[in-house]
Design a protein around this nucleic acid. Sequence first.
DNA 1: ACCATGATTGAAAACGTTTGCAAAAGACTA
DNA 2: TAGTCTTTTGCAAACGTTTTCAATCATGGT
Lengths: 345, 345
Amino acid sequence: MGDKNHKTRSVTIKDVAREAGVSYSMVSRVLNDYEHVKSDKRQRVLEAMQRLGYTVNLQARTLAGGRSQVIGLVVHDLGNPYTAQVVQSIDEELSLAGYELILHTTHAHFQKEAVYVDMLTHGMTDGLLMLIPLGSTAYLEQLRARRFPYVIIADYQAFDDFSPMVTNVNWQGAYEATCLLINHGHRRIGFLAGRADFRSARERLDAYEKALQKHDIPLQPELIQPGNYQYSGGYHGTMSLLDLDVPPTAILATNDTSALGAYDAARGRGLRIPDDLSVIGFDDIPQSAYVHPALTTVRQPLVEMGRQAAQLLLKYIEDPEQSVVRIILPAELVIRDSVCQAPSR
Amino acid sequence: MGDKNHKTRSVTIKDVAREAGVSYSMVSRVLNDYEHVKSDKRQRVLEAMQRLGYTVNLQARTLAGGRSQVIGLVVHDLGNPYTAQVVQSIDEELSLAGYELILHTTHAHFQKEAVYVDMLTHGMTDGLLMLIPLGSTAYLEQLRARRFPYVIIADYQAFDDFSPMVTNVNWQGAYEATCLLINHGHRRIGFLAGRADFRSARERLDAYEKALQKHDIPLQPELIQPGNYQYSGGYHGTMSLLDLDVPPTAILATNDTSALGAYDAARGRGLRIPDDLSVIGFDDIPQSAYVHPALTTVRQPLVEMGRQAAQLLLKYIEDPEQSVVRIILPAELVIRDSVCQAPSR
DNA sequence: ACCATGATTGAAAACGTTTGCAAAAGACTA
DNA sequence: TAGTCTTTTGCAAACGTTTTCAATCATGGT
């Protein structure tokens, strides 16, 4: 009757109960696979649900104390392949366990992080995964105090000894990559930096500098180009490097996407890789194996990080009192064809 | 007291009320910016909320009839840049409006689609976006009947006249691309197909065939390589094409990612693009402008699709009775440097 | 036939909000 | 001062579940 803007009420547990001729608590028990339910009633209830097209209301279930079967995922930026890869892997792992993902992108508004974490963890979700470059640890303590299950995924050194974490020691990867170049006789090594406000980017830069120092090669500030972890940054950064009076003979990019930018910038200048310019990337995205020449890179165990983090979180949801686990996955130098001996001067 | 596994109860509206010395409905009114609240009480409530660290429980709010401020997003596969781009754009647009995103990936399990759509739309979310290649329309009718706001994003011809949709006519794009190659004198044109079970892939193949027919060029089945919209598919498909007794002089790839695979396969064989092999892609992902030579491609308005779909959905949430809107965004041929005249035989 | 036992069931109380309704409190008008 | 509005408040009933508790129902042993 004339209900213009009225959302049709959906089928509830009570409707099903009426249809099946039982009390509504029985329906709940059938839903949750309770042990003590006579099989004929169970049958009747199931048929009624079928007939009425019943779907459980997750909000209500959660509110009443059940599980929401939803995991919160806070990421900084969906745009780069790094995040995308990890998110995909988390998604796969969690959907296997029957969980949905609720996604919050901070878009680098660090202030609002805490607010959203609060929202997500008050009722909405059963657990929280955080894949964010910079974190104030303030709200983490709250989560810990509330015994709310969460796992941090990070590509930098631990900064918080009390949080369960999956980390990836890529400091060491960047160090080894730089050494590889030095061992091939390179002395002028360009560095395509990542976003300066990211811990991981700073660490990689740090490793690069340490490796140079170790081999008594003076730092040349002009060889360090600011970047943004994106293709365009790699491209333009490389252009600037090639414009130097004495251009570098090798480039270390803070991720593969920038390295591909470097490839195309070099090609644009008619340079050949690796003969005229050696390049090393970071991440080992799928493309890196196929580009020509195949890209030497530091493999970040992205899929593995996602999987491990998801599994760890599920364990905490099972038992929040579990001791704090930290999983450290090593970055690995993958040697392909984009590095060769420095041309002799 | 000895509550081992007991989650600490969180601060509720009632706690705030007690702290502020008002009734709990007043707190709710303050939360929702009601008009009739004396400013001193409002102040007291706000302070109490502050002091206690109150966060609204969204489940409860939704259950009680409010908005969840969450949008459901169903995608097929997070892994490819196409989806990633659209998702990112949706995310940006929605987060501007204060919405979170709840993500469900079907992983091509078409059967379970309906179940999850049901879940998502019963309480969890205020609206639904669907970015899925193949859809049975059955559950859409349910949504429509329930007046639940949803918008479909598709890159194929409409198959359902009653659903709000943002589509992208890429049939025409594929047709124009093929014509471009033909007009450059190419007669043997390889085709790197997409997943056969995707509507969009079939449409593009169809357009390719129609364009050839139109120019009286006979179809050569061996020129059509199966693909998967991924880098590897493009790479291997191109390898097979180049192994033919009479290899093609041009390749039309169903997306840029495969086209990049074609690039590297050709380079691996020592062929030059476009001199020895012309290539056209599909999507215009950011990289395409930078690769060398820059890739001629059919631009899919991915960002625009995401934005428009999000905005449209928000309108429907505002007023579900609105008439059914269909937004059609044209694909556009972007001519760069990867196509040239066919070598004369 | 009767009692103890355990398997089934139903009623009712949460869960944390929003919201309709009516009471209380002010602010005017006469 | 009483009477009439208009704000401001509090109460209580939803919302759709889960879950506790007690009641009912079989069952088998004696």
